[in-house]
Amino acid sequence: MTNATKTGMIDFRGVNKWFGSLNVLKDITLSVEPREVVVVCGPSGSGKSTLIRCINGLEAIKDGDLVVDGQRLGDPATNMTQLRTEIGFVFQSFNLYPHKTALENVTLAPIHVRKIPRAEAEQAGRDLLAKVGLADKINAYPSQLSGGQQQRVAIARCLGMRPKIMLFDEPTSALDPEMISEVLDVMVAVAEEGMTMMVVTHEMGFARKVAQRVVFMDAGAIVESGTPEEFFSAPKTDRSRAFLSKILRH
């Protein structure tokens, strides 16, 4: 845990990754500052999900350096399990535990990993579920919740660990359109509290509202990076222009 402030909260330096012979991450260099919100977008297969899955070690990197909260991934001295407790990860398909209630989903890791006393963890869990607007669904099982509600439980589950970083992997793309805003509202609230966030999404409204930076990826490389205003009003490359015209059409 050395001087995390000197570098960014998340630091990619020349990171490469292959799936077989396919170069899915090409020479990625990117630094995310504490409290910064970065939106990552790009066509499917561009490597954006792989990029954030590397940050908590769901994918291993091939070469280059990836330093998260001052700890270098792949370094034997880095305790990956420990580091993961500092990073919340929200999945596209929610991945709630189907055999546990909403509250149990939120309290499982705090009780077993953080060793917080059950009563205390449950109180915190109730508060978190209330915060994401699900005070009345505490004892519901995932199968009894709508997609939007499940994703809000999943966000509460991450917040329960009091993470320093939150990663979102297309959190709204599995949702029916009318449920998207309820999830985005929660994400905006989290961002406004000063969370360091990396969000893979095509929700440009969300990007305009809270992101300090938009990163555009294509074919495994970062093609363009800038403020939302720059990116949306004056995209610099042909590929980003083509991408924007596609997603903004609907």
């Binding site: 769901l58 993961r84 990073i87 990860f89 999945f91 991945n95 499982l108 890791a109 077993h112």
Partner: peptide, 20 residues
């Protein structure tokens, strides 16, 4: 996805097996 969710919240190998 279940294992990944458990991994992401820092559960140990045995906890992942036992709880999830």
């Amino acid at each position: 996805g279940q294992v990944e969710a458990a991994l992401a919240s820092g559960l140990s190998r045995w906890q992942r097996m036992r709880q999830v």
